[in-house]
Design a binder for these strands. Sequence first.
DNA 1: GGTGAAATGCCTGTGGG
DNA 2: CCCACAGGCATTTCACC
Lengths: 156, 156
Amino acid sequence: MKLKNEIVQIDGIDKKILRFLMADARKPILEIARQIGISGAAIHQRLRKLESSGLISGSKFIINPKALGYNTMAFIGIFLDKAMSNPDAVRQLKQIPEVLECHYTTGNWSIFIKILCQDNEHLMNLLNKEIQTIKGVQRTETFISLNQQIERQIKV
Amino acid sequence: MKLKNEIVQIDGIDKKILRFLMADARKPILEIARQIGISGAAIHQRLRKLESSGLISGSKFIINPKALGYNTMAFIGIFLDKAMSNPDAVRQLKQIPEVLECHYTTGNWSIFIKILCQDNEHLMNLLNKEIQTIKGVQRTETFISLNQQIERQIKV
DNA sequence: GGTGAAATGCCTGTGGG
DNA sequence: CCCACAGGCATTTCACC
């Protein structure tokens, strides 16, 4: 499965297939076949091509964090000491399962993370005991998401 | 499929099943069955329960945006006029397919979004022509993600 | 909760247009 | 790039433990 470093060209049929599977990864291929008027074998062929082109990077069950008691999402901008090696900080952030995303960003912060906690107390503990204690972390700025209104992938 | 508003209790077998399917939604149930030493029927039963409890909120094919030429991710904090009805702004943001997430947050910004663009020029166009032109948007603060190091779901 | 077996239906390779 | 078909499995349900 070589990932080519080019833009993959897809046609309308590919898009239809992808839209079905992006909404429900376990939808039977033959059902998609019936709905778009093409044979199952043709869809399998197209999917193989899309996979080896690197456009499809996998599939996931999506779990609802609220059902596990995770109700507080927050974004945290992290300021690191100038001398700090950022990859070291990232390595430590990876150890914290509540950290869902981590970015190097332009602007004031060195690192920007998205984090999911059970409640505000959990968030405070993470900040005080896990994040602020990482070597090189100077200070942080936290924004709590009161409500997420959009959550999606790029449109195909 | 009623979603109960409680914390769902899951055991170690549920966790194993979920971990397999969170990594690959199309993994055959019988293969999971063999790997964790339980029958396929039992897994189906557990999955039905997990779905009706609301813990599983679906499954998705994950596509690689780079393969479609989307190389620039950015976060944008949006300041709205005090008088502005935020839901109206969100409604307009929903029309912009490049907006992948949208949150109401604590702190200075009224709204915080994650956005995926092809390049910096595309980002600039979105800012100038789509976002700044939304009624009530006063100004914005943009942070470009130079590199995303972590991307995952909450651990089960 | 778990199992095993049976019916149904899917996946995927091949041959051919 | 597409289809049809067939063999081998996976899925799903059911009765039962």
